[in-house]
Amino acid sequence: MSTHRPPTLAPAGQPSWRRRRLDPDHSLGLRLTLAATAAFLVLVPFALLTLLVLGAWAPLHRLDTAVTHALHGYALDHPAWVTLMRIWTEVFAPMPLRAVALVLVIWLLRRGARRLALWATTTMVVGGLIGPLLKLLVGRDRPELLDPVARAAGYSFPSGHASNATLAAGVLLLVFLPFARRGAARAALWAAALLITVLTGLSRVALGVHFASDVLGGWLLAVAVLAATTAAFTSWRAHTGLRPVRPTRDGVAPEVERHPGSA
């Protein structure tokens, strides 16, 4: 008569999956877990905002309407402001920013930084595809104004200008941080990235073609994509034996500045 031994969940002495994920000695698993958690935490407010938009939550609608009408009234009284916003929104539109990203990718490939070029491409492509898909799924109409100063086609949530500006600014920032060795240069890079991100989003609301929540949704979506692709890339490079990095301080591939072929 044969006896059946109960199956074991893990070999004796082998730490559980949960402990391996949180064990500092298993640095790759820990970084993956923390990075995935960070990306999830960014997606939570985006998902909540999306649900509020889909449900036409009255307080959000009132806030969006108040901001839109206030900025629209200012635009009607200040034609120079409208001209500035139109120029900015065209210069930092999705297509010009994608062209800049393409130039960056070509430059990285010429330096032999193939993995870094793949990360930049993946970040821009994934973010660029998710945004339009969500626009179709949410189907939110753009603001309707009696005397518009600008027009835009398509649905409204999330803002494509805001998300693509955030993606491009984030990619450029994380690629070029290793080249900025001094504090002033790093501060300038961060300031430029924030300026592009914030002012591009503001321009869409100022021109009356997006609600404020559309822009916020675009920012949150882009940050979530950046967090996810950066987590994957930094874990990948650590798995190949390269030293761990803090992307917001070191960039995603510090070795690109001295040894581009290893990035």
Rank of each mutant, 00 (worst) to 15 (best):
A162L: 10
H161V: 09
G139H: 07
L177P: 05
G170A: 01
V175L: 05
L167D: 00
A180T: 05
D141N: 13
R182D: 15
M124L: 13
T123R: 01
A165I: 02
L137F: 12
R111S: 12
S156R: 03
L174M: 12
T166W: 04
G183D: 10
A192Q: 04
L109H: 05
R115F: 07
P132V: 06
V175Q: 04
W107V: 15
R110H: 09
S159F: 10
R186I: 11
L137E: 15
A162N: 10
L177T: 06
A188Q: 03
A165V: 03
A117E: 09
L172Y: 10
R182M: 00
V175W: 02
A185Q: 15
G160P: 07
L174S: 10
L145T: 06
G154F: 02
S163A: 08
L129W: 07
A117L: 07
L145H: 09
T122V: 15
L145R: 05
W119T: 06
P148L: 03
A162I: 09
R115L: 11
L173R: 03
R110V: 14
A153R: 11
V175P: 03
L108F: 12
L133N: 01
T121L: 13
A187F: 07
L116Q: 13
R186G: 06
G183A: 11
V126S: 14
A120C: 14
F157Y: 15
L108C: 11
L174P: 15
P143E: 00
M124C: 11
L177R: 06
V171D: 00
V125A: 15
P143G: 04
G112I: 09
L118A: 15
L109Y: 04
A185S: 13
A117R: 05
P158R: 13
V149E: 08
T122E: 13
L118K: 01
Y155D: 13
L109R: 10
L109G: 14
A165T: 04
G160V: 04
A117H: 09
P132N: 05
V149C: 07
F176E: 01
R115V: 03
A169Q: 14
R186C: 06
L133D: 02
V138D: 07
D147R: 13
W119G: 02
A187P: 12
P158K: 12
M124W: 03
L174R: 07
A191M: 05
G131D: 12
R186E: 08
A117I: 09
A187D: 08
A169N: 14
G139K: 07
L109Q: 06
I130C: 02
P132I: 02
R115M: 07
W190D: 05
A150L: 04
G170H: 01
L133M: 10
T122R: 08
G183F: 08
R114C: 05
S159V: 07
R140C: 02
N164W: 02
L167Q: 01
A153W: 09
A152K: 05
S156H: 02
L174W: 02
V138M: 08
F179A: 11
L136C: 00
R181V: 13
V149R: 09
K135E: 04
L134T: 12
L189V: 06
L133I: 10
A168E: 02
A152C: 07
L108A: 08
A180I: 03
